[in-house]
Write a protein that binds this DNA or RNA. Structure first.
Lengths: 117, 117
DNA sequence: TTCGGTACTTTATATTACTAAGTACTGGTA
DNA sequence: TACCAGTACTTAGTAATATAAAGTACCGAA
């Protein structure tokens, strides 16, 4: 979708934390594919990899590099305890935001949730 | 709320567009107060004013400076046609995001919307 | 041996919220 | 009068993040 960049700030990190949590363990390329399938179609590899580096730097994930039989080695990510806390905190912040905006949003607004016009 | 900064990116602009739309006409100081009352308690004047300057630069608002009997002159903002389009587009993008995240969010998550623990 | 798919890296850029410090006008009050 | 609180806007700088772009490298199959 067009012009989502700013709106994705912070959200993307939360989404990735959740994906890692769900899978238990996963790697950048897979995360990118998954995000794309989930509707975040414009997210490219570079975005995800820089995000993962950041998570690592912040101590939210553990990394383990392992070989793959169909391509280069993969870097598997797991949430640390801090990461799990961050994931949980993210959803609280998100819920807060959603509530605030619901108060602002005009009820008469079309509220187009379906993609097909 | 703590650590909302990144999550607010893009959202704040949409919120302000909506507030201007609602009031028909309003000014920075009032917008700041309103946001604070609405739960965006940490938003300070500087943030709003820079945002308004940006909206003006982008042609989303018209500005008219008028005197006030209780303080310095106020700069009143009104949405332009482009601004109205941007406001509408914002809610569509927001609805899209909310939908995507709802798919990601674990149902078992506490979902704490109320402030009191 | 070339190519497509897999997988990760790195540098630079644009936007945005936020900080901080300041200017200035008004009315009341001590 | 002098001061102060409340109103109202400005501006320079910073941090964080998503994104663009370009590249490296591994593998199997045609």
């Amino acid at each position: 979708m067009q012009g989502m960049t700013e709106l994705l700030k912070g959200v993307l990190e939360g989404a990735v934390l959740q994906l890692i949590h769900d899978r238990g363990e996963t790697y950048g390329y897979e995360i990118t594919q998954t995000l794309n399938q989930l509707g975040f179609e414009d997210i490219v590899e570079g975005t995800v990899y820089t995000l993962l580096l950041r998570l690592e730097r912040k101590g939210l994930v553990n990394v383990e590099k392992r070989k793959s039989q169909l391509g280069p080695a993969r870097k598997f990510y797991r949430l640390t305890a801090t990461g799990e806390t961050a994931r949980s905190a993210f959803w609280q912040k998100w819920a807060f935001l959603v509530t605030q905006l619901a108060n602002l949003k005009p009820t008469n607004e079309p509220d187009v949730t379906n993609k097909e016009a």
